[in-house]
Design a protein around this nucleic acid. Structure first.
Length: 396
DNA sequence: TCTGGGGTCCTAGGACCC
DNA sequence: TCTGGGGTCCTAGGACCC
């Protein structure tokens, strides 16, 4: 039986949500109606555009570009800081509203959901449900969404990306040739800035060109990815709406430093701060990690990473930091200027289901105790209330 | 005043074993 | 003199997404 899928995509999510929040707080200016962007802190070297208003888009401003470039395109642009708590709040409100229509909802990102409506239509049509959701979100939550309608996730997602904002589009299998094949191949989901130039060299300019290309040739050139892009171009996607909550497969934290560092002791302090945050999240999720990964980015934007297995799965800050520090020391060449440091834990498993090791660290209980005391303090007095001593700056 | 941060998945190649 | 072949596990790096 054909599936009935909706893809809901919040228009300019970060900017719209901040706009709604500001209005709720009594501000009269709706930042959606002026050239405005959400951006990082330029002084801290995080100055990229994270979201833009439609008015900003008219000036050619694109997401991900440096703010100074956006200012060149539009000198009167207003720049606002983002706020993750606000985003979470509105994302949850949207999710809650959508739950009234189906419990088969996949939260694809903070501002995108897939809905499997197959068993929830009653006598209504999919189009009518989409219209109702579209209207209710605008009226009850105050922001607009694009909705894509189709029989699989890929086509629903492609459809929601058509004309924006505040629109509903269908892209059924019968409409692939007229609505999708004429689009530039770069518009196809999962085709990025590496694949597209290669496809161009092969004479593939539109999604239609790709769909008609020999599948085996694509597999030969791009491997698995080649097979997938051929299927996507032909509108084939058999994946299910993954509505069950899934535990994360990795947890990471990275930071672009306010200024480049070329001193390993200073890098270690940064690494400890990152590790504390990662292990805190790990423990809150009741997970333990089997692998640690440290990432460095030089001032010339060259990325390197090293990873290593832990002897036993753990969520202990001390144990993971010890491993991270060893990885840092093995990969860092003294004197190299570092722009970004990151730490990530991988191969996660449930704490309870963890394989018991014969070589359990005898200090384990002690380490767990320290972590839980610190976690409790963080819960009570805020995340920055307590830290391991290594992170506290020495007075000069 | 260049170029964020958080993820998932894939691949090539090395080490090691039989 | 020259150096198989299959399999597994692991790591570094890359591509892509929002």
């Amino acid at each position: 039986m054909d599936k009935k899928i909706l893809h809901i995509d919040v228009n300019n999510a970060f900017l719209s949500w901040l706009a709604v929040y500001k209005l709720k707080c009594g501000e009269t200016l709706d930042i959606r109606n002026i050239p405005a962007i959400i951006g990082g802190d330029e002084e801290a070297r995080k100055g990229v555009v994270l979201a833009k208003s439609m008015k900003a888009k008219e000036f050619g401003i694109i997401t991900g570009e440096p703010i100074y470039q956006a200012k060149k395109k539009c000198p009167q642009i207003q720049v606002f800081k983002g706020n993750l708590d606000i985003y979470r709040e509105y994302s949850n409100k949207l999710y809650k509203l959508l739950l009234e229509y189906t419990d088969k909802i996949e939260r694809f990102s903070i501002d995108e959901c897939f809905l499997d409506m197959t068993e929830y239509l009653m006598k209504d049509t999919l189009e009518n449900k989409a219209k109702e959701i579209h209207k209710r979100v605008k009226q009850e939550l105050g922001f607009t969404v694009n909705i894509g309608i189709s029989n699989n996730k890929l086509l629903a997602k492609m459809a929601s990306d058509f004309e924006k904002p505040d629109k509903i589009h269908t892209l059924y299998t019968s409409e692939i040739q007229t609505k999708m094949w004429n689009l530039p191949v770069s518009e196809l989901f999962m085709l990025g800035k590496k694949s597209v130039p290669k496809l161009y060299k092969m004479g593939i300019k539109t999604i239609g060109d790709l769909a008609k290309k020999d599948r085996q040739l694509l597999i030969k050139t791009f491997g698995k990815h080649g097979n997938m892009m051929w299927e996507y171009a032909n509108g084939i996607d058999n994946s299910e709406v993954n509505y069950k909550y899934e535990k994360p497969k990795c947890i990471g934290n990275s930071i672009t430093l306010p200024m480049d560092i070329c001193n390993i002791e200073k890098l270690e302090k940064v690494l400890l701060g990152l590790t504390e945050q990662v292990t805190y999240r790990l423990r809150k999720s009741n997970l333990v990690a089997n692998s640690v990964n440290v990432q460095l980015r030089t001032k010339d934007f060259i990325d390197t990473s090293h990873q290593g297995k832990l002897d036993i799965a753990t969520s202990s800050t001390q144990q993971i930091y010890t491993k991270a520090k060893a990885l840092l020391r093995e990969m860092y060449n003294e004197g190299t200027f570092i722009r970004l440091v990151g730490v990530r834990v991988d191969k996660l498993e449930d704490k309870e289901q963890r394989q018991l090791s014969l070589f359990e660290n005898k200090d384990k209980e002690k380490l767990d105790k320290i972590d839980s005391v610190m976690d409790n303090l963080k819960e009570k007095y805020g995340y920055n209330s307590i830290t391991f001593a290594g992170r506290i700056e020495k007075k000069e």
